[in-house]
Simulated assay, not measured.
Amino acid sequence: MGAGDVIAQQLVERRGLHGHHVPRTLKMMAIGFCFVGPVVGGWYKILDQLVPGTTKVVAVKKMVLDQGGFAPCFLGCFLAITGAMNGLSAAENWSKIQQGSFTTVSFSAQIWPPVQIANFYFVPLKHRLAVVQCVAIVWNCYLSWKANRM
């Protein structure tokens, strides 16, 4: 999460080293450590219990549950947490979630389905979070940019 935020600030927003907002990076790191890692790791364990196995059909079922059920809820919570950490009121936060959820979920649906099918089919449970985090460097850059521009 921290690396994604640094990339967002430096390459996307072009803030430069003097314009880098360190508290924002620290907030994103905290969200990653306290929310993203535990929640996504726990979700993969639950998903493996709900849909056991590693066949192609099982991988597709897991991806559908992941992207159709988990991802929208997770992204809404992520936007709410970043809004709260940025000092938004409940009304401002709700407005931000309503504005950003559709485009964020739509972009997620373009990136994650092929990654997750491969992840669920080829990668053992204990390594799935690591695989996701490799792809998530780019995804977290987008999330940081999206969450902090609204």
Rank of each mutant, 00 (worst) to 15 (best):
L79M: 11
R128N: 10
S144K: 00
A136D: 06
V60R: 02
W145L: 09
T82Q: 03
K56V: 12
A59I: 13
K56N: 09
W94V: 13
L26R: 12
Y44T: 02
K61M: 04
C141L: 11
S108D: 15
P113M: 13
V57Y: 08
N93M: 01
G69I: 01
K45C: 11
L75K: 00
V39Q: 07
A80H: 09
V22H: 10
G42L: 07
A59N: 07
L75S: 03
N93H: 05
W139Q: 11
L17D: 07
W112D: 08
G68Y: 00
F70N: 05
D48C: 08
K27S: 03
L88T: 10
D5Y: 02
A90H: 07
D66R: 09
Q110H: 14
M85H: 01
A80S: 13
T54F: 14
V60C: 02
L50G: 07
L143T: 02
G100R: 08
V22R: 15
C73P: 04
H18C: 13
P23K: 08
I111A: 09
M1V: 07
F78I: 05
P23L: 09
A30L: 10
Q99G: 13
T54W: 13
G37M: 01
V64R: 01
L11R: 10
A59R: 08
M85C: 10
F33M: 03
V138G: 12
L50T: 11
G68C: 10
A90R: 04
A8N: 15
N148D: 02
G19L: 11
N148C: 01
